[in-house]
């Protein structure tokens, strides 16, 4: 169980790393938001599931309650963070942020 938890958390940290590199390197707002959305949804989910598995190692009532709460957080993040990314993109579109085109300078 603890090995599985370690694998999940490591995978989540890998996606966080990729997302951070994307936020730093990509050229404009929309592409950076694309990278940040990966951090928010996939990486956070993997880390949360890993932590839940780690808590459920020795199985009793208290730990099960804590694990269920952590999984509920996972469900909540899974609904909320793509919506937040969508709202940010839409707000930028309404405010008139131009997408980056090939050959332009990084903003």
């Amino acid at each position: 169980m603890s090995v599985a938890a370690a694998i999940f958390i490591t995978a989540g940290l890998f996606f966080f790393l990729v997302g951070v590199i994307g936020v730093l390197r990509l050229p404009d707002f929309y592409t950076r938001l694309h990278a940040a959305g990966k951090c928010d949804s996939l990486a956070a989910e993997l880390v949360i599931v890993g932590v839940a598995l780690y808590v459920l190692q020795d199985f009793n009532l208290g730990n099960t309650l804590v694990g269920m709460k952590i999984l509920l957080i996972a469900v909540f993040v899974f609904i909320a963070s793509p919506t937040a990314t969508h709202a940010l993109t839409k707000a930028a579109l309404v405010a008139g942020v131009e997408p980056w085109k090939k050959g332009e300078k990084k903003s």
Partner: peptide, 29 residues
């Protein structure tokens, strides 16, 4: 891009359907 902006401005009630549905699901919780 222009078309999307105009369509958003024409929308009467608040934000897009995605945000409204997500808020509808989440508010009780």
């Amino acid at each position: 891009m222009k078309l999307l902006q105009e369509r958003t401005a024409k929308l009467k009630l608040g934000e897009s359907l995605i945000i409204q549905t997500a808020v509808r699901i989440m508010v009780p919780f």
